[in-house]
Design a protein around this nucleic acid. Structure first.
Lengths: 127, 127
DNA sequence: TTAGATGCAAAGGGTTTGCAACGTC
DNA sequence: GACGTTGCAAACCCTTTGCATCTAA
């Protein structure tokens, strides 16, 4: 399937390239609407997906609304298999010193960090 | 406000303590329903929030459905201000070697990682 | 007794999808 | 002309909320 160049897609990419922040789909929608007033949200979402698949843009899967929970108390890192979606706990020690590094460089108060590795888990490798 | 010990809350915590994976709210709901058939989802969500606030459980804000996008191509880290919600790009170099460390320890194929720091940004500190 | 907790159902938000019309190649 | 794209609206999914009722303390 070969993608076509449409006004809408180009406008969306344009907005994203010039954005300073990390816009949400809705923000992009509002922005693009200024040049293409009757663009629909569906188009924005579909194009964001296409652009992501093309490698033109990145999608940040940071704090989302779909949450998972765990009883473990200590802070630790996770691995997410992109094949089966499973999440594994890692027993890699937490690099607390990174917080200080960032705090020093930015002047922000850093309280914690979340680290998630992505890849293919063992059992999916053998499928 | 002092929390009360209810059957529902205890059952939810119990399920979570024994869960091997990182269950979603829905999974927990289905599990708890076996002992308390008429429990409602609202109760599950409310209790997960309470338990989180009490520090009994942790909420994993990993890949969610609410996404943000960016045009930047290179991989980099982020800082999220828990006060204003703003996300900042960090120019900390990406620790690619961590991927190899995890790969060696787990036998998984690691393709990337996402790192998000949390804390208070400069302008929110002065409010 | 009383304030916190529950069940239910409706509402909320962000995202996806079906469909007919449209536009690009 | 074929097939990817669009606009629209409805559907979806997960989560939150309002309300009357219940219940732990």
């Amino acid at each position: 399937m070969i993608q076509r160049a449409t006004r809408q897609r180009e406008a969306i990419l344009q907005v994203l390239r010039c954005a300073e922040s990390h816009p949400t789909a809705d923000w992009i929608y509002e922005k693009v609407k200024k040049s293409i007033p009757n663009i629909s949200k569906g188009t924005v979402y579909r194009n964001l997906k296409v652009l992501k698949d093309m490698g033109e843009i990145a999608e940040l899967n940071l704090s989302g609304t779909v949450c998972r929970y765990e009883g473990r108390q200590d802070n630790h890192y996770h691995f997410r298999c992109t094949e089966c979606g499973q999440i594994f706990d890692l027993d890699e020690p937490v690099h607390k010193e990174m917080d200080e590094t960032i705090a020093r460089k930015t002047g922000f108060t850093v309280s914690s960090h979340q680290l998630e590795f992505r890849g293919i888990c063992k059992s999916c490798q053998h499928k």
